[in-house]
Design a protein around this nucleic acid. Structure first.
Length: 270
DNA sequence: AAAGACACCTGTCCGC
DNA sequence: TGCGGACAGGTGTCTT
């Protein structure tokens, strides 16, 4: 469920409950996530969380020694509890702090992951090959244009490739392409520098606005206090098959690319 | 090397 | 009301 804005919203919500606090215990009720949660996760006990960071859709918990690397997959979420209720079927992991509160990880589909990283978490194999942050200075239309040369893959799949740019998931890929007026089926190698500059701007704008709005609400996204985000009502094309394009009123189309739904306006997007 | 298919797993919704 | 099928925010791995 979470795309980058949802992960960033989660990070901001957890930060005051994690940074500066010492982990008293980690309870893993279900270790079978995307990869098995390592037994060595117990190394986190008695360590202080010094910083909570994000890289792409990974949450990085820097510890006094080492780090935790946490990914929410499709359906992961956290909640902070001061008096946690009995864990439910999908409440797989509790991080218990010495101050008494608990950060509980819930993930029905179990596509998420919790890994142990070293003192240089960005060097972990899962993070080392990630492309630039979309909201950072290394990401630009120039970058997309250069990387896209000679590529025949559809631009939508191209921008969802984490080696190209991290954090652009299915919703925001559709939204940014709409905002940039680019047909999602167009080959990555057949887009001008000028149009890539527009696309890069719109990726930044779309993600930035979603973060400000607290993440997208779909069926079940909530922040760390269980509150929904407020961006869903602003979506231009995602999930709007058959409904009128907000710009030209022609029906929004849905197609499938790389086994994922793509929503776009055939008139506004060329 | 690039691109596409498939895999992981559970829940929800829709049509019959 | 029940049942089967399609679909859902991600991404690593395998095959062409």
């Amino acid at each position: 469920m979470p795309e980058l804005p949802e992960v960033e919203t989660t990070r901001l919500g957890l930060q005051p409950h994690a940074e500066g606090h010492v982990i008293a215990a980690v309870t893993v009720r279900q270790p079978q996530l995307r990869w098995p949660v390592p037994d060595a996760i117990g190394h986190a006990v008695d360590q202080e969380v010094t910083r909570l960071e994000r890289r792409g859709k990974w949450l990085i918990w820097r510890l006094s020694a080492g780090s935790l690397l946490w990914h929410l997959g499709m359906s992961g979420s956290f909640r902070v509890w001061h008096n946690p209720p009995a864990p439910g079927r999908h409440d797989h992991i509790d991080v218990i702090f010495d101050a008494g509160h608990v950060i509980r990880y819930t993930d029905p589909r179990r596509f998420g992951a919790l890994l142990l990283g070293g003192s240089d978490p960005l060097a972990h194999p899962r993070l080392a090959s990630l492309g630039p942050e979309p909201l950072g200075g290394d990401f630009s239309g120039q970058w997309l244009y250069r990387l896209g040369r000679g590529r025949r893959v559809a631009v939508k799949n191209f921008i969802m490739n984490a080696a190209v740019v991290v954090g652009v998931g299915n919703i925001y890929a559709c939204e940014a392409l709409f905002a940039a007026g680019i047909d999602p089926r167009r080959a990555a190698g057949r887009i001008s520098l000028q149009r890539y500059q527009r696309l890069a701007e719109q990726i930044k704008a779309t993600l930035g606005q979603a973060i400000e709005a607290g993440g997208t609400t779909l069926s079940d996204f909530t922040d760390s206090h269980g509150q929904p985000g407020y961006f869903a009502q602003k979506l231009s094309v995602y999930g709007r098959e058959g409904q009128p394009c907000r710009a030209c009123a022609r029906p929004v189309r849905r197609i499938v690319q790389g086994q994922r739904s793509t929503f776009f306006c055939p008139r506004c997007q060329r």
